[in-house]
């Protein structure tokens, strides 16, 4: 029962951070900040999956959602910035 209490505390902190970061991702004018914030939301979501007893989903989200997705966003951003200059 004590364990559950700690889990609830961590989940509340992670949830508040990820909602604030998602607002940053939508509201910020700089694209790179938005992409990084969306990646961190994904990473905190994987912590939340781990707390909700879903290790398989946590692994997938950490490697695909926050790793590869952010990488391809930056490929596109780099391409667009370079043809601007």
């Amino acid at each position: 029962m004590n364990n559950e209490f700690v889990f609830v505390g961590i989940a509340i902190v992670v949830g508040i951070i990820s909602i604030v970061l998602s607002l940053v991702a939508i509201h910020n004018k700089k694209l790179s900040v938005a992409i990084i914030a969306a990646g961190i939301v994904s990473l905190f979501a994987s912590v939340l999956y781990l707390l909700m007893a879903a290790p398989d989903v946590a692994m997938t989200e950490a490697s695909i959602g926050s790793g590869l997705s952010t990488l391809i966003f930056f490929y596109v951003l780099n391409k667009i910035k370079r043809s601007d200059a």
Binding site: M59, T60, S63, G67
Partner: peptide, 25 residues
Amino acid sequence: YVFMNGHLTPGGGFQGGAIIATGVA
């Protein structure tokens, strides 16, 4: 290792494939 042990431990084909893709990245 992750996709060979998918039936025993957390992990499996999708996670292992994604890890291999991160190596390629």
